[in-house]
Design a protein around this nucleic acid. Structure first.
Lengths: 187, 187
DNA sequence: TCTGGAATATGATTTCAATCATATGCTGCC
DNA sequence: GGCAGCATATGATTGAAATCATATTCCAGA
């Protein structure tokens, strides 16, 4: 099943594809076909700077959509390159644009987008905290430590070593508990 | 004039307010009235953690909206506190929800939100670059250096000192030009 | 069951950005 | 016109996170 709000679209709007490492889904400047939902695998969005610098715009992960803005644009403005094999669903630009005439879809889309924006803002605030210990604490308070510590560290833009050390310091300070290997909770 | 897409809403949906430092616009748990567009001034959104930690969720700046997700929620889930006096416009939750029945508004909202998400993802990628010089270069390539260097540094989550030093190093490396005091461009 | 890979965890060292300090240019305003 | 405040700019020092290294545990899969 597709994640919200794309589950509300007719099945005719979607096309499943398997992807292999190195595949190029689209190139900067190509006509837009639509957005993508990554089921499994990894995809990088990259932009090439005026002087040839490669700049990673986004790393798409399982269960998330990417290139949403392409629905509102004539041309892709970055490259999409498959890093790890997997599968994805392409969702037609025209189907999405048409679906905005359906208030249920429109509201679901709006809700989803608003929540995403909020989550991004919060992570950006947290990432702005300089001290690793404070940053990790804020990340825990924000509920970002749900999966592995390695994933958590990546979301905080810290190395996992720094994150483990901060977690230990927080445990020693009594602010966090470590009920079992790899699990941490607010004290 | 309000920023997109709220300019499409009927004027009856908006209420202008002047705000003073220290004012509380809403509290965590209060019934949601709607979202806000900050015209001038500064507003912080803060959440209080389970153990009383204050965590800044977002710093709203002039010309931007905040609490968009409240439109889809019964209760505010953070506090909104005015840091610097100014003025803002409150936009009724019910008016926004109703406006999603208008495909033009829905699409404008979708486009705006998708672009914001994209911009956030890009900034997060850039902020994840460790070396100050690489980060600053990426920021320039991404077109983030439009205002002052101080603002640019804040967006990159770097101190302005580190940013100035990186800019100088980039100029010395011939990757960036410094046509006049305070202005930098790609070489 | 063995094996390989990833997550967990922590120690030692290095590096580089933060911090502290200082100076100048520019702008608005009283 | 002078002063306050901010942006620009750079030097010196410090501190903390990155990096490098290593060990153990856990899990999936051959």
């Amino acid at each position: 099943m597709l994640p919200e709000p794309y589950d509300l679209l007719p099945t005719t709007a979607r096309q499943s594809h398997t992807i292999a490492a190195g595949d190029v889904l689209f190139r900067q400047g190509a006509r837009t076909l639509g957005l993508y939902v990554l089921i499994t695998g990894r995809v990088h969005l990259e932009r090439v700077g005026p002087n040839g610098e490669r700049l990673i715009i986004h790393r798409a992960t399982s269960g998330t959509s990417f290139a949403e803005a392409s629905v509102f644009s004539e041309r892709y403005h970055c490259d999409a390159i498959v890093m790890d094999a997997g599968e994805l669903v392409r969702i037609d630009k025209s189907a999405v644009l048409a679906a905005f005439a359906n208030p249920d879809f429109a509201r679901a889309y709006g809700r989803h987008a608003a929540q995403q924006v909020q989550a991004h803002r919060q992570i950006m605030e947290i990432v702005g905290i300089r001290r690793a210990e404070d940053r990790v604490m804020a990340g825990i308070v924000a509920g970002l430590l749900d999966g592995t510590v390695v994933d958590f560290a990546a979301r905080l833009q810290l190395t996992h070593e720094a994150t483990y050390r901060a977690l230990r310091a927080l445990v020693e300070a009594g602010r966090v508990t470590n009920p079992s290997r790899g699990t941490y909770r607010l004290a």
